[in-house]
Computed example of a mutant assay.
Amino acid sequence: PAEDILVAALRLAPTNTDILITLGQLYLQTEDFNRVQGVVGTLRRIGSDAAIQAANGIEAERLSGQSGIDSALSFLDDLATGAETNLATKIGLVRARLNIKDKTGALALARALKNENPDDETLDFVLASTQVANGDLDAAATLYRDLLATNPIRPRIWLELSRLELRQGDPDAAEATIDEGLDHLPKNPELLWAKASLAERDGNIDGAIDIYQALYEDNSNSIVVANNLASLLATYREDEESLNRAWSIARRFREANAPALMDTFGWILHRRDNSAEALPYLEAAAKGLPEDAIVQYHLGQAYISQNRPQDALEQFRKAVSVAGAADTRPQIEEARALVQSLQKSPTIEN
């Protein structure tokens, strides 16, 4: 279970703020409020700005869940007016208000902080984030553009502006923003990753593979880059060289338990005619990623190879349902055709 893994990791690194935050969020999800308080206490004893901000945010979420939002808001108001509260803590309180769904309060606090600190550009980013949360996308975009005009060497802001443009329904503008960012930061891995993701979404698989290949050559230790490269090679290319390349990259995933990695490893096993060995990986991946149509398709193909047409039909139906009528990817089109042909088989129960 996730808790066991996190607790074991925490024993090795008892002051690791990231582990404590993840553990606190897990306890919030399970409403184990006593353990939440334990995490908050540990973060406060660590005492760094990051730890205190995290403690305040988790405590506000605990109060909201256990005693109601009024208790959480009262707690945050007391913190905001405390004599020892510094700017970093107040920025943390903006995030805490967003986490408890007090979007209006978060925006008001962000505006107040900016008015008090007009020369602090960090607060422009905080204010833009709260404007996005409140649906004022145009105002947020203006702030992001102002920040980039002052200093374009800010990959995070290029990424946020691109995401905002996607939310506005303008994928061309989002792609142009990433390209503009890459003009200033041509080797930035985050911007390259975003460009690859947009290429993949637009069906430019070869373009995405080229970018992931470059990222992999720069950092072959990145599991996420390795997985995306191997997955695209095995899913969209049929030649033996690409399959062998995918296998050489993904062999490290044999012991992985993340669904995306299990899908990649299992699909490559299937493509290499080891469908029986692939099945446990693909079944776990399909269970862990129920909204990924390609993952459902992969499992269906493995069932076909193992002469399990009834199970295959169910998987292809899932793939088609998840993908939706507008999806024209070749795997989904094949899944639709297989649903039709399998339904006609005399061995199938419809």
Rank of each mutant, 00 (worst) to 15 (best):
S129A: 10
L76G: 00
I268Y: 13
E241R: 15
P330N: 06
L164T: 03
H298K: 13
K101G: 15
L63N: 01
A250K: 13
A2D: 14
T130A: 10
A149H: 13
Q168G: 09
D32A: 11
R336M: 08
R95E: 06
D146G: 09
D124M: 11
Q340S: 08
D138S: 14
E59K: 05
V322W: 12
A325K: 15
E116G: 10
E200D: 10
L87H: 15
N16D: 14
T42K: 14
D311T: 08
T142I: 08
V39A: 03
A194L: 03
E283L: 15
E175W: 12
Q131I: 02
E175S: 15
L123Q: 09
L43R: 04
E116V: 01
D124E: 09
A139T: 12
T22K: 12
A88Y: 05
D119L: 10
L109I: 07
L233C: 09
L26C: 10
L342N: 02
A312S: 14
V7M: 07
A278G: 12
P346M: 03
L6W: 15
R45A: 07
L164I: 00
N307R: 14
R251W: 04
N56A: 09
I19G: 04
Y27A: 12
T85D: 02
R271F: 00
V322K: 13
R271Y: 11
I205Y: 03
L79M: 07
A128Q: 05
L229F: 07
T85P: 03
G57T: 05
R154Y: 05
F316A: 04
L12P: 08
P14D: 08
A208I: 01
W193C: 11
R329G: 02
A173L: 05
K187G: 05
A54P: 04
Y144E: 00
F125G: 08
N350P: 04
G288Q: 09
A286E: 03
S48L: 06
T81L: 12
D239Y: 05
S129K: 14
N151S: 09
K195Y: 04
S64H: 15
E277F: 06
S129Q: 14
N307A: 11
L28D: 08
E190S: 13
S305L: 04
L63M: 09
R35N: 14
Q66F: 07
N99T: 08
Q331D: 02
I268A: 02
N221P: 06
L215W: 02
N227C: 01
D119C: 06
N274Q: 09
A284D: 03
E240Q: 14
P346S: 01
A96F: 00
